[in-house]
Amino acid sequence: MTTRAEFMARIRAELGKTRGLPPATPARRPARPRVEAEAIRAELAERWPEALERFRHELEKVGGVFYRVATLAEVVPVVAGIARERAARRLVSWHAAELGGDLGPALTAQGLEPVAMPPGEVASAAERQRLRELVAAAELGLTGVDLAIAETGTLVLSSGAGRPRSTSLLPPYHIALFDRTALVESLAQAGVFLELWHADGAPGPRGAVISFITGPSRTADIELTLTRGVHGPKEVHAIFVEAPIRG
């Protein structure tokens, strides 16, 4: 088997043979990502309505559904409406602390069967298996959002304690809540936040995975016929909450 040293030595030897290559530099990186991220937030404190409108437009173009409500409490009837129309009841959600509030009792009162994910490490393998089966059997997955990218209608979700990856993946209907602090205008701005989250060698924001989600799961692999929900959710609903829902 090739060792790291042998492998890298061969690469260095080949690189040593190159000459006359064009000058080239990688992308410009934010020198102080925190400062740039704050500048983006400050600009968006003014411009967010335009960004939100663009987000709505792009999300709808990729087959997502957009809603706008005033407060977290108003999310409940929207979720209940989505569930009713699809004859769905079983809902799994991020933990209340990650979602920005506990909607469980209110959703239960609307006839749903919500289950919130645990806030931290689940030591028992049997319990982990039970939770996985629960998520796999659920019809609705309710999550928060770390970034909403207007340019592409994209939701960015980082995994972590209390925010399992599967809640936005296994149920056929994904419902995501966000407020204006999550809004960015462009992929380039999202890049500044990715740099910030990993600055100085820090591990990512929370868990090991960051997912960019741009509309419902799709394929055109059979005679180029667009079909939704091949593996991931077949519907994505993004609910914008005017009152801030995260710190």
Binding site: E58, V62, M117, P118, G120, E121, V122, R128, L131, R132, E151, T152, G153, T154, S159, G160, A161, G162, P164, R165, S166, L187, L194, P203, G204, R206, G207, A208, V209, I210, S211, F212, I213, T214, G215, P216, S217, R218, A220, G232
Partner: peptide, 24 residues
């Protein structure tokens, strides 16, 4: 590739399951 602005899923994976994560 397909004329999409972005593919539906871009997944950034940084190693195995992190402490506190339910899955991975």
């Amino acid at each position: 590739a397909t004329g999409q602005k972005l593919s539906v899923y871009t997944t950034l994976v940084q190693g195995p399951r992190r402490a506190g994560e339910l899955e991975g």
